[in-house]
Design a protein around this nucleic acid. Structure first.
Lengths: 160, 160
DNA sequence: TTTCGTGCAAAGGTTTTGCACCGCA
DNA sequence: TGCGGTGCAAAACCTTTGCACGAAA
């Protein structure tokens, strides 16, 4: 599914709920889809949207992101750096992505396996708790970073 | 290990790093240890410390919590309610606690099983990533909350 | 016209910082 | 004296909100 199709699909979700796909919302969505792997902050989204739509205000970006979170199109997350970051939840990614956070190079990789179905079953039986969503983050170090190579394997970023 | 012993142990960790256990820090630690299960925010810690040490300033609490996080005695966490919360990491709890967050009653339960050793092994082999810590939160609903009982099973809190 | 969405500026809430002061080596 | 630690207030920071305006049904 390409970006245009995804935006169409989201447009339908908006319409059903009585919301409109304004140019501001469309460009914000485009930015999110084009940077799906990057976990952008509101400020970063704002900067990118501004390149195509300079008149947009930061408040609109916040309102759009809030709207998308309400529709479960994005998920608001916090990785401890003081800003909220937004994770797309398209195409069955629903509650199935985990994160690897490298302490050396700062990379934040998303991995797609769903490893937790057994655990969710155990939580249900042992704790009387029905899971609807989960969050799993691993902090650690890429072997390539640890081995003192000059670049992070994933991002290509220079490593301090 | 009782609270006095735990504070002694932490005092040693502080001393090794050149920090002192001031009365403010000691009372802050006591509050954290006495409310280990509660994931207090800085403001909540401040209120509780103030009861025993009214002259303390909020900034000191923030600085103490930051210091304890640096020493890995507490972990700063964010559950999406706009404030940082602090999780004690004493007595081998290290990277072994997970959370159940009930959407109905708001309870935040800590569970102690360490279910992720296998997954950490997989991450190491499949992604070339050595895990040093992890975070696993389950969002969902307690069966007792779902069944419309008037109280949450865990907290006893009234359920809307 | 009515409603929804927007931009701007102001407000709100949390956390950090600057600075003078204090106690202890 | 020197230095780490503190309290207070101000600042910084991210995010939300109030309000008037504008576009579309």
């Amino acid at each position: 599914m390409n970006i245009v199709e995804q935006i169409d699909k989201i447009n339908m979700q908006l319409t059903v709920k009585g919301y409109k796909l304004t140019p501001q919302r469309e460009i914000t969505l485009k930015v999110l889809l084009e940077n799906e792997r990057d976990h952008l902050s509101a400020e970063e989204v704002y900067m990118l949207v501004k390149q195509e739509f300079p008149e947009i205000g930061l408040a609109t970006v916040y309102r759009t992101l809030e709207l998308l979170a309400e529709l479960q199109i994005v998920q608001k997350m916090n990785f401890g750096d003081g800003v909220a970051r937004f994770d797309l939840r398209m195409e069955g990614h629903d509650h199935m992505h985990h994160h690897l956070i490298c302490k050396v190079c700062g990379a934040l990789e998303e991995i797609q396996d769903d490893w937790l179905l057994d655990l969710e079953q155990r939580v249900a039986t042992e704790y009387g708790f029905q899971v609807t969503d989960h969050r799993l983050d691993f902090t650690g170090v890429y072997h390539t970073c640890k081995n003192n190579s000059k670049q992070c394997k994933r991002t290509g970023k220079a490593v301090s």
